[in-house]
Design a protein around this nucleic acid. Structure first.
Lengths: 214, 214
DNA sequence: TTCCATGGTGAGTAATCACTCACTCACTAG
DNA sequence: CTAGTGAGTGAGTGATTACTCACCATGGAA
C-alpha cells in the first residue's frame, strides 16, 4: 500500500544527515552567526521545531557538522604508493592537484576558515583532520628524502608547510577572494611543483663538485 | 585652537577614529554578525545612540573600517630599492619578514578573511590594497629578473603568488589556527626565501637533467 | 543675557533570534 | 478495536538586535 512514492518518511538518521547537509551548506556560505535556525529548517524541508528535536542547540548542530566531515584516505594511499617509489614529482603533484582542480568544492574550506575565525571549540579537530594530515605526511616524506640525500638539508616541516602554503593560498585566492584563474589548473599545479622541487632537489653543486648520475 | 583640557570633548573626527578603532578590533575578533553595536559603543566609551550619529548603519561603519586601512608604503619603497640593485635575496626577505615577525598584529588579516567570507562589498578593495599590491610588485620584479636571464623562465604571477602563499599560509597557521611556531621567525623566513630562490635562480648547469657537466 | 550649533544620551521600538511546548499524525503491537 | 510510540509541527516565549527619537549640556557669538 504505502510505497515509497507517496509519503515515505525519512528515518531518523536520514533526517539527521539531511539537516547536517543543509546546515553545512548554509554555515559555509554565511558563517555560524550569519545563519538562522529557520533558514536551516527551511533548507532541510522541515519545521524549525524539528531541528531542535535532533540537535538541542544550534551550536551542537554546528559541532556535528565539523565532527562528521572526515578526510579522504584514497589520496593519502596514492601518495604513499608514490612515496614508496621515491617518485618525488608524483607525490607533490598528487597533493597539489587534489586541491587544485576544476570542480573543487569550497564548502569545506569555508567551514574551516569560519570555524577558526569564529573560535569554535572543534575548529582544532577539524583543522587536524583536513589539513594537518597533509603536511604531516608530506613532512615525513621530505624527511626521508633528505636522509636519502636526494633533497637538500631543509627543515622538513617548514618545507612541507611551504608547499602546502602555495596550494592553500591558491585556493584562498580563487575560492574565497574570487580572483580569476590565471592559468589552467594543470599548468598551475605543474608550475608550483616544478618551482618547489627545483628548490628542494640536491643538485651536483658548483662548490663541491661531486658526480651524481641517476 | 583648542587646548587639551581635563574635560576636553573629543572632536568629531577624533570620535570617528575612536569608533573605527574600537569597531575594527571587535569585528576582527568576532566578525560582522558576531559583533553588536552595543559592544562597539561600550568599547568606545560612548552611548549606542552616538554610534549611529556618526555611522547611520552598522554596515557603513564596517565599510568605513575597510576603506580607512591603507597599505604601508615604506616596505614597498625598501623593496623597490633592493629591486633596483637586483638584490634578489633582500627583495624576498623584506617581503617575507614584513609579514613574519614576532609582534605582528593579526587584526588586519582577520578582518580581511572575515570580509571575504562574509561577502562584504568592500572586500575586493580591501584585498587589493592589502595583498594584491604585494604580489603585483613581486610579479613585476620576477618578470624583469626572468628577462635578465637571472631567473628561470617561470610565469611571474604564479611564482609571485607561490611565494606569497608560503608567507600567508604561515600567518594563517599561527595567527588564525593557533599552531605553535616551529622555528624562530628569522629561521622561518630564511628557509622560505632559500627554498624559493633556489628553485627560481637559473643554475649554470644545463636544462637536461641527465647531462651534467661540472 | 539669549540663542543656537554641536556633542551626547536614556528610553524606547519593531523585528528577529534561539529555543519551547502542547499538540496532531501515522503506524503498529496486543 | 485501542493504546503506545516516535516523527513532526504551529504558535508561541523571553531575550537580543539594529536603529530612532525626544531631549539634555556646554560653550561661544550676538
Amino acid at each position: 500500500m504505502n510505497q515509497i512514492s507517496r509519503h515515505m518518511r525519512p528515518s531518523s538518521s536520514e533526517r539527521q544527515a539531511g539537516l547536517i547537509a543543509a546546515a553545512a551548506s548554509l554555515f559555509a556560505e554565511k558563517g555560524f552567526n550569519g545563519t538562522t535556525t529557520r533558514e536551516i529548517a527551511k533548507a532541510a524541508g522541515v519545521s524549525e521545531a524539528l531541528v531542535f528535536k535532533y540537535f538541542p542547540t544550534k551550536r551542537l548542530l554546528y559541532a556535528a557538522i565539523l565532527a562528521e566531515k572526515v578526510t579522504v584516505n584514497e589520496l593519502l594511499e596514492a601518495v604513499e604508493e608514490a612515496a614508496r617509489k621515491h617518485d618525488d614529482h608524483r607525490v607533490f603533484t598528487l597533493i597539489a592537484s587534489y586541491r587544485i582542480r576544476p570542480d573543487v568544492d569550497s564548502t569545506l574550506l569555508r567551514l574551516l576558515l569560519f570555524s577558526a575565525l569564529e573560535g569554535h571549540e572543534l575548529s582544532d579537530m577539524f583543522f587536524g583532520k583536513h589539513h594537518k594530515v597533509f603536511y604531516d605526511h608530506l613532512a615525513a616524506y621530505i624527511r626521508t628524502r633528505v636522509e636519502d640525500g636526494a633533497f637538500r638539508a631543509v627543515d622538513p616541516l617548514l618545507a612541507a608547510r611551504a608547499f602546502i602554503g602555495m596550494v592553500v593560498h591558491h585556493r584562498l585566492l580563487h575560492e574565497i577572494f574570487g580572483v580569476p584563474m590565471h592559468q589552467s589548473h594543470e599548468n598551475t599545479v605543474a608550475t608550483y611543483v616544478d618551482l618547489f622541487l627545483t628548490g628542494l632537489i640536491k643538485k651536483p653543486d658548483n662548490k663541491t663538485p661531486e658526480r651524481q648520475s641517476r
